[in-house]
Structure formats: C-alpha cells, structure tokens
C-alpha cells in the first residue's frame, strides 16, 4: 500500500460530488448562525464532534471488515433527517463511481450491486480506503476532515469569507480531528466484536432540523 493514496482520497478535487454540498453551512448562514470565521469555527467544531464522529467511525468500521449492509443500516438509524439520508446515499453513489474508477475492487463492485441507488457515503468511503490499501485510521481521518472542509469551503463562497480565514479555521481544528479520528477507530474496533450498537450516535439537532428546511428551499446554491 501507499500512504499517499490518502492524499488522493482526501483531496477536495477528488471527483465525488462534494463540491455541490455545504454540509449544512448554507442553512446556518441563511439563519444568521454563521456570519464569519468565529461562528464558522464553532459550526465546524460541532459538526466534527457529531456527524463527523459518526461518519469517521462508520468509515473505520468498514475498513475493518464490518458488514457494510449493517453499517448502512446503522447510518440510517443515526440520520433521522430524510434529506440527509438522501444526500448521504447520493454522495455515496458518486464516491462509489470515483472510487471504482480509481481503485477497482470486487468489494466496491459488490456494494454497488447491493445499493444501486447508493449506500451511505461513509460506508463507501471506508471500502474505498480499503480498496486503496489504506487503514481504518486513514479512513477515519478522511471522513472527519470532510465533515469540516465541506462547510468551510462552502462558507467562503456563501459569505465571500476570506479564504485564509477559512483555512485557519481548519488548521485550528486539527488537534480535535486527531482526537475524533482516534475515537472513531476505537469505536470501530469495538464494533467488530460488539456489533454496530458500539458505534457513536452523536446527534446535532440543528443540522437535522435545518437540513429539512434547506431541502424545501426553491432557491439555493448548494444541494445540501
């Protein structure tokens, strides 16, 4: 394996659809809850420790060989908002396409057959990492980072935020990304023996509620 494959997978330019999604930032900006770098940081920190933590653990568990069908059901149970479930499956399907073209693998093929309309993105991410020869911690890092990089780059476009400020937010979150990735791998290891109930279920009520509001908007820049 090559550790550098992680850079390919985590690259914001990896063609898996992320650019059209704000991770809830567009709704938070419209509601006036994110207005600049400080509130963006607070938003990203909250998303990292909730949705990011869950995604990282799901991805890590997929790398460790936990049945992706069970992981997908666990992701459903941890995603009450149907708009967010649809987004996760859509992005999962797009990632599946990019991953199969990049790291062909029979496991990815099997998952694509099982979920023709897409499995939850973190589950696909884990199997993509596995296909790329990466480990559970790599996948957890990738999922945790995506949970904050998406909102940060979206906010640059939404608020015309200084891109250096947005990058500074991500850099300041780095120690917490380390922590979340480590916790995710720990939970994923537990999940191998104890089942998917051992996965974190951290919830973010405002992300869930505003995802439903956002999905009903007639005019928006981002798909989610």
């Amino acid at each position: 394996m090559s550790r550098a494959a992680l850079l390919v997978l985590a690259d914001g330019r990896f063609p898996a659809g992320g650019h059209a999604h704000s991770g809830g930032a567009e709704a938070a900006v419209k509601a006036g809850r994110v207005t600049g770098a400080a509130s963006l940081e607070d938003f990203c920190r909250g998303r990292l420790h909730t949705a990011g933590r869950v995604s990282a653990a799901l991805a890590a568990a997929a790398v460790l060989g936990v049945d992706p069908v069970r992981l997908d059901a666990a992701a459903d149970a941890r995603t009450p908002s149907p708009a967010l479930r649809a987004t996760a499956r859509k992005l999962g399907r797009q990632l599946m396409r990019a991953a199969r073209a990049t790291w062909p693998s029979s496991e990815l093929d099997a998952l694509a057959r099982e979920f023709p309309k897409g499995a939850h993105q973190p589950v696909v991410l884990g199997l993509a990492a596995r296909a790329a020869g990466l480990g559970a911690l790599d996948a957890a890092y990738c999922a945790a980072y995506e949970s904050v990089s998406g909102p940060a780059s979206a906010t640059v476009r939404l608020l015309s935020l200084d891109p250096f400020d947005a990058t500074g937010v991500l850099a300041r979150l780095a120690p917490e990304l380390d922590l979340v990735a480590d916790q995710a791998v720990e939970a994923a290891r537990e999940c191998v023996d104890a089942g998917v109930d051992a996965l974190p279920a951290a919830s973010a009520p405002l992300l869930e509620i505003s995802a439903e509001a956002h999905a009903a908007w007639a005019v928006r820049l981002f798909a989610s």
Partner: peptide, 17 residues
C-alpha cells in the same frame, strides 16, 4: 443537477452528479 455555485466544476472537474 445542483452545482454548489460552481457550474463549470459539475461539467468538467467533477462530473459524478
């Protein structure tokens, strides 16, 4: 298809959607 404020990305750099 929704393009996240970057229509050229959706037809050129990331055509997945």
């Amino acid at each position: 298809v929704e393009t996240g404020a970057c229509p050229h990305t959706a037809i050129r750099d990331d055509i997945s959607a």
